[in-house]
């Protein structure tokens, strides 16, 4: 481990690059959490599994079947979206008047099933995937920058743009927002709220899959990664104020940078504990998140 005194500008820059890279993923996972939370009030404990499914399916399509990346990207996203819809149809929709405890256990059960299925299909190996455009690092002010990192940031920007357009300028998006604000009122205005719930699972799974696809070339995906990715993404969602997706994006990147910096400056062995520690700290001190208004959050159930 290097001495703290030897930390240079390029080291700091390197931590920021690393942090933004993983932060984008946390932000995407957090957006997935928020979509389902807004539509249903459920925290989907299987959120991280969508990311794993996306990554592993992409590996199979590109590395084993040698399909071109754009085609595999679309096929993977569609397949995982279908998995999200299936999850809603078979496990959430049939349950009438569920308690919170039962819903939590149901989504945990789904996460175990997905994890078990992934282990059955792909085994316990971690899989390498080729980078989207070359794995030669670029030099950026003395720090090294992988082209894949640019892909990750670019994808996040595109998704955020699509997200803003969808929720502000399309009828379906506005209906979903109406459901999130007040489900009963939305239903009275003729919105099919059950369909919105299904849609939220579809979008959430799709975003999770994309997160998995773009990060896999860097981290190498394996079946067991879901839990940690999920809980860190949840940390970002809470830090940004649960339900607030713009907050989640900033919080996700912040979480990633904090994690990378403390891994570099303190110890990389405890890296995973740091994001979790931040999550606990936020939950204990300010469960409404750094961007949430505490007055509005008082109305919600913690």
């Amino acid at each position: 481990m290097m001495e703290p005194s030897s930390v240079s500008f390029s080291d700091i820059l390197q931590y920021i690059i690393m942090g933004v890279q993983s932060g984008c993923i946390y932000a995407l996972v957090a957006m997935g959490f928020n979509m389902i939370y807004n539509a249903t009030g459920i925290i989907n404990f299987a959120q991280g599994e969508f990311v794993v499914l996306g990554g592993l399916l992409m590996v199979s399509l590109t590395m084993t079947l040698n399909l071109p990346i754009p085609l595999s990207f679309a096929a993977t996203t569609l397949a995982v979206t279908a998995a999200g819809v299936a999850m809603e149809r078979f496990t959430i929709n049939p349950v009438k008047n569920p308690t919170v405890l039962r819903l939590i256990i149901i989504t945990i059960a789904v996460s175990i099933i997905v994890k078990g299925a992934a282990m059955g299909i792909w085994g316990k190996n971690s899989y390498f995937m080729r980078h989207f455009s070359g794995s030669e690092p670029l030099d950026f002010l003395g720090a090294s920058l992988l082209p894949q990192t640019l892909w990750i940031v670019g994808t996040l920007v595109l998704i955020v743009a699509a997200y803003i357009y969808f929720f502000n300028h399309t009828m379906t998006g506005k209906c979903m927002r109406a459901c999130a604000i007040n489900r009963d009122a939305a239903r009275l205005s003729g919105i099919n709220d059950r369909r919105m719930v299904m849609l939220s699972f579809a979008l959430s799974a799709g975003i999770g899959a994309i997160a998995g696809i773009i990060i896999t070339p860097i981290i190498q995906m394996d079946y067991a990664r879901g839990a940690l990715l999920g809980i860190k993404g949840f940390g970002a969602a809470v830090l940004g104020g649960l339900g607030n997706s713009m907050g989640a994006i900033i919080a996700g990147i912040l979480l990633g940078v904090l994690e990378a910096a403390s891994a570099g400056l303190i110890s990389s062995h405890y890296m995973d504990a740091i994001a979790l520690f931040i999550l606990l700290l936020v939950l204990f001190v300010r469960p409404s998140g750094i961007f949430g208004s505490s007055a509005a959050m008082r109305l919600k159930e913690f």
């Binding site: 925290i43 919170v100 949840f234 940390g235 999550l279 606990l280 939950l283 469960p287 159930e301 913690f302």
Partner: peptide, 11 residues
């Protein structure tokens, strides 16, 4: 409560 408690204990 609920989800937050589950996540906090998981963390």
């Amino acid at each position: 409560k609920g989800h937050y408690l589950a996540m906090a204990t998981l963390g």
